[in-house]
Amino acid sequence: MDSTLHNSNAWDRKVEEGARYTQAVSTEIIEESKKGNWSISVTTEKSVPREWFPSSLDGVKVLCLASGGGQQGPVLAAAGADVTVMDISKKQLEQDEFVAKRDGLELHTVQGDMTDLHVFDDEVFDIVVNPVSNVFVKDVAPVWREASRVLKNNGVLISGSTNPLLFIFDDNEEQKGVLSVKHAVPSSTLDTLGEKEIEAHLKANQTIEYAHTLEELIKGQLDAGFLISGFYEDDFGGSRVLDRYIKTFIATRAIKMSPKV
C-alpha cells in the first residue's frame, strides 16, 4: 500500500469535510497581515514568536512545507514574503490558491511529498515553515535532510511536531476521559488494528499516522546540520484530557549551520 497516496486522498477528503486545518484564513486576516499585524501557528493553539522571523519579510524566500490549507502561506505572502507552498494534497493547495486569487497575493503552489524536494535546487530558501505534518510520513529523517538542503546557510527551519507521548494512549478511551496506555513508540495507526479494522480505516479514507521518537524529531534535525535555537510546547487548548497533565505538541526553530548535508 502507498501510504503517501492514501494520505493525499485522505487530506483531500478533509478539505471537503471542512476540517480545521483546511479552512482558509479570512480577508480580514490578510488585510491585517499586509499592515504588519500577522501571526502564524505551526502547532495547535500558540502563535510562532515573531522574533523567530526577520524583522521584515519583504523579499524573504519562504517554503511552506506540507503546509497547504490557505493558512500560513497566504499570511506570510501578505506580510511581504516570496512564498512557495508545497503539500501532498491537491485540494489543500487549492485553498492557498483561493486566498491568493481572492486577496490579490503572489504565491506559488507545488504538489509533492515533504520527504522529496527534488523540484527545488540547493540553498534557495531563507525559511522553511513546517507545521505539524511529519506524523504522516514513516521516516522523518528525509524531511530534515531535504529541508536542510534547500535552505541557504544560516537559513531557518520552523517546525511543529507531536510529542510522542500523545500516541501511547488508546485514543477511544482518552475521548471518554480514561488514559489507558496501549501503543508503543515508534508505531503507526495500523499497527494495533486487525485486518477488518484496517480495511475499514482505509475505506473510510482516514489518515495513516506515524508516531516518531524524540530522537527522530530533535536529534534528527541536529544530524541534518541544524542548531536548535528556539523551542516551545503547545496543547489542544484544554479540549483533551491530556491537556491537564502535559503539553502534547512541540515547536522548534533551527538554524542550518552546515552548507551541505
Rank of each mutant, 00 (worst) to 15 (best):
residue 256 K to N: 06
residue 190 L to R: 10
residue 35 K to L: 07
residue 146 E to C: 05
residue 158 I to K: 13
residue 81 A to K: 02
residue 242 L to V: 07
residue 115 T to I: 06
residue 62 V to Y: 14
residue 41 S to T: 01
residue 139 D to G: 02
residue 107 L to I: 07
residue 187 S to T: 03
residue 83 V to H: 05
residue 43 T to Y: 04
residue 239 S to M: 04
residue 118 H to V: 10
residue 48 V to T: 05
residue 80 G to D: 04
residue 124 V to W: 10
residue 6 H to K: 10
residue 56 S to M: 03
residue 1 M to N: 00
residue 51 E to Y: 10
residue 248 T to K: 07
residue 224 A to F: 08
residue 82 D to H: 11
residue 242 L to Q: 09
residue 203 K to N: 00
residue 207 T to M: 04
residue 72 Q to P: 00
residue 9 N to V: 02
residue 122 D to A: 14
residue 107 L to A: 06
residue 197 E to P: 01
residue 198 I to R: 12
residue 28 E to D: 02
residue 223 D to V: 12
residue 3 S to K: 13
residue 202 L to P: 00
residue 84 T to D: 02
residue 162 T to D: 13
residue 231 F to S: 06
residue 108 H to Q: 10
residue 111 Q to W: 02
residue 109 T to V: 09
residue 116 D to T: 01
residue 70 G to S: 11
residue 114 M to R: 00
residue 3 S to D: 01
residue 178 V to N: 12
residue 145 R to E: 12
residue 91 K to R: 13
residue 45 E to T: 07
residue 13 R to T: 09
residue 199 E to L: 08
residue 131 P to V: 10
residue 210 Y to S: 07
residue 76 L to C: 08
residue 20 R to S: 13
residue 259 P to Q: 11
residue 88 I to S: 12
residue 22 T to Q: 04
residue 235 D to M: 01
residue 209 E to P: 00
residue 219 K to W: 12
residue 5 L to Q: 11
residue 217 L to P: 04
residue 7 N to Y: 10
residue 45 E to G: 02
residue 152 K to L: 03
residue 170 D to L: 04
residue 165 L to M: 14
residue 61 K to G: 01
residue 216 E to T: 04
residue 218 I to E: 06
residue 196 K to I: 07
residue 223 D to F: 06
residue 230 G to C: 05
residue 255 I to R: 10
residue 245 Y to L: 12
residue 60 V to C: 09
residue 89 S to W: 13
residue 243 D to C: 11
residue 89 S to E: 14
residue 4 T to N: 03
residue 121 D to M: 13
residue 80 G to I: 00
residue 49 P to M: 11
residue 147 A to I: 02
residue 170 D to Y: 09
residue 136 F to E: 01
residue 92 Q to H: 14
residue 123 E to H: 01
residue 114 M to P: 01
residue 223 D to Q: 13
residue 159 S to H: 13
residue 66 A to T: 07
residue 257 M to C: 05
residue 71 Q to I: 15
residue 197 E to R: 02
residue 97 E to F: 07
residue 213 T to D: 12
residue 78 A to V: 02
residue 163 N to R: 07
residue 201 H to G: 03
residue 231 F to Q: 12
residue 62 V to W: 11
residue 199 E to I: 02
residue 59 G to I: 08
residue 60 V to A: 10
residue 192 T to G: 07
residue 23 Q to S: 05
residue 249 F to K: 11
residue 15 V to W: 14
residue 116 D to C: 04
residue 112 G to R: 15
residue 146 E to K: 11
residue 231 F to R: 06
residue 86 M to Q: 15
residue 13 R to L: 15
residue 68 G to E: 15
residue 47 S to G: 12
residue 192 T to A: 08
residue 110 V to C: 13
residue 63 L to F: 03
residue 247 K to T: 06
residue 18 G to I: 08
residue 256 K to Q: 08
residue 260 K to V: 03
residue 11 W to K: 05
residue 224 A to E: 05
residue 188 S to G: 05
residue 133 S to N: 15
residue 113 D to H: 10
residue 132 V to R: 15
residue 100 A to I: 08
residue 191 D to T: 03
residue 56 S to T: 15
residue 39 S to Y: 00
residue 65 L to W: 14
residue 193 L to N: 00
residue 141 A to E: 08
residue 78 A to K: 11
residue 85 V to C: 03
residue 241 V to T: 15
residue 29 I to P: 00
